[in-house]
């Protein structure tokens, strides 16, 4: 019965209903069907929301990025990237993913708010704009999605190489509770193949995206020539 809440989420997301309202309704329905009182439900929602405020601290970075953008961050990024020969949006995304993997494997966290929005995405847009001139909205969106994905790929698939990562600790903790003896270093070693394969997959996808954008603008130029 409690699974109806999940159904609400799935249907709500697919139908693109208001996300906040969908999440709250799913929560209330699940709680009620799971035998919780309305006060318990409100209390669980409210106290978790309050203790998780740290998730919103990235907001403190936004004013700074806003000012930098006003003072020419994107223009300058475009200018710089134009000087590097052969740098495309896709190659930049792959390069960033590689850096992201190396950093997280050493326990250093980068991220969407600190890295992708102020640096990587404007540089990737700049790389494409230097080849094709002003970009259309679809291409801009493609590049944005590629930059965001590069961060997630690098973060997810290389983090368990760092032995003090919370994921590694979770694996060790869970297995020990189940009665197995494990050490963190073997977990970290077991995480390496996936990190390499994920990088190869992302490289292929980003290269294909570069080709797709190039084709799109070739077609546009031909149309213009007629």
């Amino acid at each position: 019965m409690q699974l109806i809440g999940i159904l609400v989420i799935v249907v709500g997301f697919i139908m693109k209903l208001d996300t906040i309202a969908v999440v709250l309704s799913a929560g209330v329905i699940t709680g009620l069907l799971g035998g919780m009182s309305i006060v318990e439900i409100l209390n669980t929602l409210g106290s978790t929301f309050t203790t998780q405020r740290s998730m919103a601290l990235f907001l403190l970075i936004l004013p700074i990025i806003g000012i930098c953008e006003r003072y020419g961050l994107k223009e300058r990024a475009t200018h710089l990237i134009q000087k590097i020969k052969g740098m495309s949006a896709g190659r930049l995304a792959t390069l960033y993913m590689f850096i992201r993997e190396i950093a997280i494997a050493a326990g250093v966290k980068l991220g969407h708010a600190e890295f992708v929005r102020p640096l990587i995405e404007p540089m990737a847009q700049g790389a494409a704009a230097s080849k094709y001139g002003k970009l259309d909205e679809k291409t801009e969106d493609d590049i944005k999605a590629m930059a965001a994905a590069a961060d997630n790929f690098g973060n997810f698939f290389a983090q368990n190489i760092f032995i003090a990562n919370s994921g590694v600790l979770l694996v060790v903790g869970t297995l020990e509770e189940l009665g197995y003896t494990v050490d963190a270093l073997s977990v970290a070693n077991a995480a390496i193949p996936v990190a390499v394969i994920a990088l190869i997959f992302a490289f292929i996808q980003n290269t294909l995206m570069d080709k797709k954008i190039a084709k799109r603008y070739e077609a546009l130029q031909k149309e213009g020539a007629k």
């Binding site: 699940t30 709680g31 035998g35 669980t44 929602l45």
Partner: peptide
């Protein structure tokens, strides 16, 4: 995150 806590509390 709040929803996740609620799911767990409700035994999903």
């Amino acid at each position: 995150a709040s929803l996740g806590t609620l799911f767990t509390a409700a035994g999903v």
